[in-house]
Amino acid sequence: MQAVAFWGLAAVAVAGGIAVFVVGSMARATFALLASFLAAGVELLLIDLHYLGALVILMMIMEMLIMVVFMVMYMMNPAGLMPMVMVHNNRGALAISAGVFVALATGILLTPWPQRRGSPPRDVTFDLGQALMGPKMLVMMVIGVAILATMIASVVLATHRGRYDRHVRFDRAEPEPDLDPARGPRRRCRVTLETFLLLAAALFAVGLYGALSQQSIVMVMMGLELMVNGVLIAGGGFWYYVAPGTADGQVLVLVAITVMALEMAMGFAVVTALFRARDVDVTDDAGDLKG
């Protein structure tokens, strides 16, 4: 039962991710991405991460609705009524992302993963709360400062009255949180750590393709988010199959969710400022903002 659910949801997650870059309508693309996230959220529910699963569903619906606002605002022809292609270096991107997937998959299957230590606590969410208020306090406080900075920076960038709107600083996208899902063999069609990591790698690769090939900044952000979706799955998998006794995996997922939201806020602010200054939202045309 669990395996059927896992594979079904995995298919939805990856298909949603691919659909993002295939469909012509920006509204459909965003909701395809949302479908991918919802499938990931339910995957987390399957491995007892009830809080994180519900949280992913909750946050991603809100974030994708905000995403769609910006997609529709800045993308030409948002309903896809006049099909057009806005990609660059499509083949290269395809090759790179396929290569990355193969590398990750090989790594995943060849790495000797550690045995499971401990078992899930009785109340997983309580455990997470304990960790956040105790040893992981610093994480929360750092994120608090990051949120404050994001609020101020995005308001400054995006509002018309903002002080810097003529001198756009183009430093998009925080680095992805440490992602090392590559090590280890095991087999069988059961749901294991490897299958979780393979799903994560697939989402990551699809997202990478998008980030490399799309011309429009908002579409690039969609790709980045798909990559973060892979991180969510990987984090959940690590927690459940490697160290359910500690809250580290859960905290990783929380951090990924937060980083993604902050990345979106900053990204939208940058796009707004860029569009205001240049009337475009395309990466190729923003090249002269470097340096």
């Binding site: 605002m73 022809n77 009524l81 006049m82 709107d165 707004t272 569009f275 205001r276 009337d279």
Partner: peptide
């Protein structure tokens, strides 16, 4: 061209907000 289903697509215009949408 430019009129799917026989109806034109919207055109852009400037705005007090500084965004031409």
């Amino acid at each position: 061209m430019g009129a799917p289903a026989g109806l034109a697509m919207a055109d852009r215009a400037a705005d007090r907000d500084g965004l031409t949408l």
